[in-house]
């Protein structure tokens, strides 16, 4: 394993982490502010990807496709919040899990009904196809580099929104004391709907970005959802900063685990056994990381007790 390959894999881990952050940010906001476990977050990711694929094939424009993904997921989020989620805030978590799980099934079958069972086509824009040369002779896919850039910009924007704006102030206030902020005359229903739409839009945006390099198909959101939950648990539920750090940790651990563990075991056993044990352990690595972190910080890295 030479240094160039190692740096490339670090970039891969970073890109994966940034993607996870877009998912985890919405999830942690919704949980932190409203105390809601939203299993249907993965469906919003899928809706974003399908909207982008449909618009890209109709117009040929990737920018329009990204805008469509934001809009479609946000609209779906608003509808879901007003029709279903709103009734769940005061219920216990089991009811929320049950209802949002039903939403997963409804969204999956609804999407299949509209778009069919076959995966859709969505490609990276031609301006970002192929690889770019970085210093030290590293060549890296341009599109993945763009994802890292976009993700960091979104993370910074979210940070500004939450720490520097009035709506951010209300979000933070809602997080610490729901009754008090309502008593102070803030329309809590509108605030909740807005936060839900924001989280949904971020998930849909992530779905569109990832859809271009993965498969746009029914059920694409659920594997990511599990990772997003791991991320927010590691980072501390409700904390945007925690979601960011958690996402990068999960992204890097998963990628580097897949690459390094087989090599590590290969040092003292035969290649095929090393590959088998290494890849089995690599698929567990992020859960081991989560367990280890929770052992020392039971509320996650940035969680409040």
């Amino acid at each position: 394993m030479d240094l160039v390959l190692l740096i490339e894999q670090l970039l891969n881990g970073l890109q994966f982490g940034v993607m996870l952050f877009l998912m985890a940010a919405g999830l942690t906001l919704i949980f932190g502010v409203m105390g809601l476990i939203n299993l249907a977050h993965g469906s919003l990711y899928m809706i974003g990807a399908f909207a982008a694929a449909a618009v890209a094939s109709a117009t040929g424009s990737f920018i329009l496709a990204l805008i469509a993904s934001l809009a479609a997921a946000a609209i779906a989020g608003v509808i879901v919040e007003m029709v279903v989620i709103r009734r769940l805030y005061d219920r216990d978590h089991l009811d929320q899990v049950l209802a949002t799980f039903a939403l997963i099934l409804i969204f999956s079958e609804g999407t299949r009904w509209v778009f069919g069972s076959f995966p859709l086509y969505l490609d990276v824009p031609s301006a970002l196809s192929g690889a770019v040369e970085l210093p030290f002779g590293i060549s890296y896919p341009a599109y993945r580099l763009a994802i890292i850039g976009i993700g960091l910009v979104v993370a910074f924007g979210l940070f500004l929104l939450i720490t520097r704006t009035r709506i951010g102030m209300r979000i933070r206030a809602g997080e610490s004391d729901r009754e008090m902020i309502a008593a102070l005359g803030v329309n809590i229903a509108v605030l909740y709907t807005a936060i839900f739409a924001l989280g949904a839009a971020l998930a849909g945006f992530a779905g569109a970005l990832v859809g271009a390099i993965q498969s746009v198909q029914v059920g694409m959101g659920e594997p990511v959802l599990i990772l997003a939950f791991v991320t927010i648990v590691i980072g501390g539920i409700g904390s945007i900063r925690g979601a960011f750090v958690g996402a990068l940790l999960v992204g890097l651990t998963d990628t580097m685990g897949r690459v390094l563990l087989p090599v590590l075991f290969g040092a003292f056993m035969n290649p095929s056994a090393a590959m088998a044990i290494g890849s089995a352990l690599a698929s567990m690595s992020i859960y081991i990381l989560m367990a280890a972190i929770l052992l020392f910080k039971p509320t996650g890295l940035y969680g409040s007790a």
Binding site: Q9, N12, G13, S215, P223, V224, R258, V259, M275, S279
Partner: peptide
């Protein structure tokens, strides 16, 4: 190389 079943991102393997 054997990957996880259902894996969606192959950046590490492609490298």
């Amino acid at each position: 190389v054997y990957t996880k079943l259902g894996q969606t991102d192959y950046a590490a393997e492609i490298a």
